[in-house]
Design a protein around this nucleic acid. Structure first.
Length: 393
DNA sequence: GCGATCAGCT
DNA sequence: CACAGCTGATCGC
């Protein structure tokens, strides 16, 4: 596609149309309330949350793209200067509320930009997205897949969010006398909190701004800002530390739960013992439903709950796809070429490195690191400059 | 003084 | 290490 026409999650000057996959801060860096570079296309939920995040934003620049139907885009061809038409379809990305993938079609062919996404093969919602995607493609091939490669490495393997949510429930019910704090961000993991509330018939404390977000999302009235009403609190992840938990435990017995796809949560403090990480099943054997105790051996790579600290559990609840899910998605889409959208990670890999057998054309000249030998690509560590998960087309 | 950007931290 | 994001310092207007 010609450069300078369409930008996704990228906010530098020089594009005609801008697209926002979801409202997490690492995808909005460069966006501000004073934005005037052009229209921004996003999902209805993202549009709803937008003014809360960017209070004085000129809302006439927002364009809602409904999920599941083609939306016509008016562009100017950079090559000829004449009007050009393209279309876009938003498809639910199941990453956080409002998150979508964008499928573009035009004279440039088909481009699919996943944004951050979770592709839970067993989930009913993913099946809807699957048929939506296949119907939209109608047999055509995706020319370039821009892929959420956050966990694009075979070492990343974790259960569905449904299973991980049950692990959280098990921790809470196994510790009836404990207060529980759960680390979350400004957006995302609402389903986990709703599930806990529903199963345990208990309200969930959130901080005031987060309560506003819950209301904007139209979620059930199970959230509160009164600490006296519940022993379960969802707190900002940045406020979540071993020291915080120690402080809380000086008052009342309190356990912290970190829902995360990462195999580690935080660096153990100097002199701290124990991050040898006993697994949840070591501690709570028979009560735990995970790993399943059905006589079969659990995949050694499948992460389970880890006790990182006397007071802290890490639960593999992830809003990004794990490696087998990414693989399944690429197999479904069968792109001609693909590029990772996350370029900063200690284990950053070009998705082509592990998944080249699933794309239709895997000539080295098409890969991001065409100058490297294939064996070297997986070891590339990208420089800090491109932390933004983005792409320009 | 304000917004934008960056350093540092979790 | 950093899924995402806060705070505070600094730069430029």
């Amino acid at each position: 596609m010609e450069s300078g026409m369409i930008a996704v999650d990228r906010w530098t000057e020089g594009s005609q149309l801008y697209f926002l996959t979801h409202l997490h801060a690492d995808h909005t860096r460069g966006l501000s309330s004073t934005w005037a570079r052009g229209p921004i296309f996003c999902s209805r939920i993202t549009a709803k949350l937008f003014p809360f995040r960017f209070p004085d934003f000129n809302l006439s620049l927002l364009r809602v793209v409904e999920v599941g139907s083609w939306h016509t885009l008016s562009l100017v061809s950079l090559a000829t200067g004449s009007p050009a038409v393209a279309e876009v379809m938003a498809i639910d990305a199941h990453h956080c509320p409002g998150s979508v993938m964008f499928l573009f079609r035009g004279e440039f062919g088909y481009l699919l930009y996943t944004g951050d996404f979770r592709w839970e093969i067993t989930s009913e919602m993913a099946n809807i997205g699957r048929s939506m995607l296949l119907n939209a493609l109608n047999g055509s091939k995706v020319d370039v897949l821009y892929l959420d490669n956050t966990y694009c490495n075979p070492t990343y393997c974790f259960p569905s969010r449904e299973v991980a949510a049950q692990q959280v429930i098990d921790i809470i019910t196994s510790n009836p006398e404990h207060d529980i704090i759960i680390g979350i961000d400004t957006l995302g993991k609402e389903d986990l909190l709703l599930h806990i509330s529903h199963v345990l018939k208990i309200k969930i404390w959130v901080w005031p701004e987060r309560l506003r977000t819950m209301h904007l999302l139209g979620l059930p009235d199970i959230f509160t800002t009164k600490t006296s009403l519940t022993r379960i609190r969802a707190v900002p992840r940045y406020s979540f530390s071993i020291d915080t938990l120690k402080g809380l435990n000086a008052m009342r017995p309190t356990l912290g739960i970190m829902p995360s796809g990462l195999p580690w949560v935080m660096k153990p403090l100097e002199g701290e013992k124990s991050p040898s990480c006993s697994t949840f099943s070591d501690t709570f054997e028979s009560r735990s439903k995970w790993p399943p105790n059905d006589g079969n051996r659990v995949d050694q790579n499948m992460r389970c709950v880890e006790r990182f600290h006397q007071y802290i559990y890490s639960v593999p609840y992830s809003d990004h796809s794990c490696f087998p899910e990414i693989k399944e998605f690429v197999r479904l889409v069968q792109p001609l070429n693909m590029k990772g959208i996350v370029s900063l990670s200690s284990c950053y890999v070009d998705p082509v490195y592990y998944l080249s057998h699933l794309i239709r054309s895997n000539q080295p000249s098409h890969t991001t690191y065409s100058n490297l030998k294939r064996e070297d690509v997986g070891k590339v560590k990208v420089k800090r400059e491109s932390k933004m998960a983005n792409s320009k087309a």
